[in-house]
C-alpha cells in the first residue's frame, strides 16, 4: 500500500486537492451518483486523509466539475476533494489507481489554482455508425447542425418547450467515411449553459432517421476529450 500522507500534522484548514480522471468503457453507464459512491469508496481504500462534512451524517466532501451523461465517455473529468493532512500528489495518483477498476483512471493530481466555474467549454469526439449514413449525408448533417436557431424540444421543470441551443456551440467539425459520421465539437459546459452532445445526435436522429435500424449494427459513441476556460485555454 502506497503511503500518501507526507506530514501527520492536521492542517489548520482542510485543503482542496484536484484529481483529473478518465471514465471510459463500461464506466460510461455509471450515473453521477454511482460515480460519487465509487470514487468515495476508492479514496477511502487508498487511505486519503479525507475531510468529512460536519453534519448529522458526516460524509467525505467530493465535488465534480461538470455533469457527464450516462452513455458518454471522458478523458478529462475533474474531482475536488478536501483533505486534512498534506499528501504527496504522485503517491495519491498511484494509491488511488491501485484501487480503481481499469476503466476509471486518475491521470493527474494537484492542488488547484482555479475554481470549477472557470470551466466554460468541453470538447467532444462523436462517432455515429448507421446504415442511414450514405453519400451526401455529410452536407445534410452539417446544414442541420449549423442552423440558427437550432431548436430542440427539452423537458424542463416548466414543462416541455422548444429551446434554441445554437448559442452553446463554439466549434463544430463534421467528417464522413462510408457509414461512419464523426463530429468534433466544442460545446458550452458551464452552469449557465450546458449543451449535452446527445442533443446533436438526437437532432440528426429525428431529422435524418439515423440509428433507427438494427441496434446490433448501428451505434454511436461520445468521448469528452478536453475542457476549456472562457478564452479557450485548457482548464486545469
Amino acid at each position: 500500500m502506497v503511503q500518501v500522507i507526507t506530514d501527520d500534522a492536521l492542517l489548520e484548514r482542510p485543503r482542496t486537492l484536484r484529481l483529473r480522471f478518465s471514465k471510459v468503457g463500461s464506466l460510461q453507464y455509471i450515473s453521477h451518483l454511482d460515480l460519487m459512491r465509487t470514487m468515495t469508496r476508492a479514496l477511502i481504500r487508498a487511505r486519503l486523509p479525507l475531510w468529512y462534512t460536519q453534519g448529522y451524517n458526516p460524509i467525505p466532501h467530493l465535488v465534480f466539475a461538470t455533469p457527464l451523461s450516462v452513455g458518454t465517455e471522458s478523458r478529462c473529468e475533474f474531482l475536488d476533494v478536501r483533505i486534512v493532512k498534506n499528501v504527496d500528489s504522485d503517491a495519491v495518483l498511484a494509491a488511488v489507481n491501485a484501487t480503481l477498476p481499469q476503466e476509471l483512471r486518475i491521470l493527474e493530481v494537484y492542488y488547484p489554482e482555479t475554481k470549477f466555474n472557470a470551466l466554460v467549454y468541453s470538447e467532444y469526439e462523436i462517432k455515429i455508425v448507421s446504415d442511414a449514413i450514405a453519400d451526401g449525408y455529410l452536407s445534410q448533417a452539417s446544414e442541420l447542425l449549423w442552423k440558427k436557431p437550432l431548436t430542440v424540444t427539452k423537458k424542463t421543470k416548466a414543462g416541455i418547450r422548444d429551446v434554441d441551443v445554437s448559442g452553446g456551440i463554439r466549434k463544430l467539425e463534421l467528417n464522413q467515411e462510408g457509414n461512419l459520421l464523426q463530429i468534433h465539437a466544442v460545446l458550452a459546459a458551464n452552469s449557465a449553459e450546458f449543451l449535452n452532445p446527445e442533443l446533436l445526435i438526437r437532432i440528426l436522429k429525428e431529422k435524418t432517421g439515423i440509428l433507427s435500424g438494427d441496434p446490433m449494427q448501428e451505434y454511436y459513441s461520445i468521448l469528452r476529450i478536453a475542457d476549456y476556460t472562457e478564452d479557450m485555454a485548457r482548464f486545469r
Partner: peptide, 26 residues
C-alpha cells in the same frame, strides 16, 4: 458473445445499464 460496441446501443436504451456491464472492482 456480441462485441461490446454493438451492445452499446441496447445498453443506452435500457434502465440502469450498470446492471449489465460487469467490470466491477474486485
Amino acid at each position: 458473445m456480441c462485441k461490446k460496441e454493438n451492445l452499446s446501443t441496447v445498453l443506452k436504451s435500457v434502465s440502469k445499464p450498470g446492471r449489465y456491464t460487469g467490470g466491477e472492482f474486485n
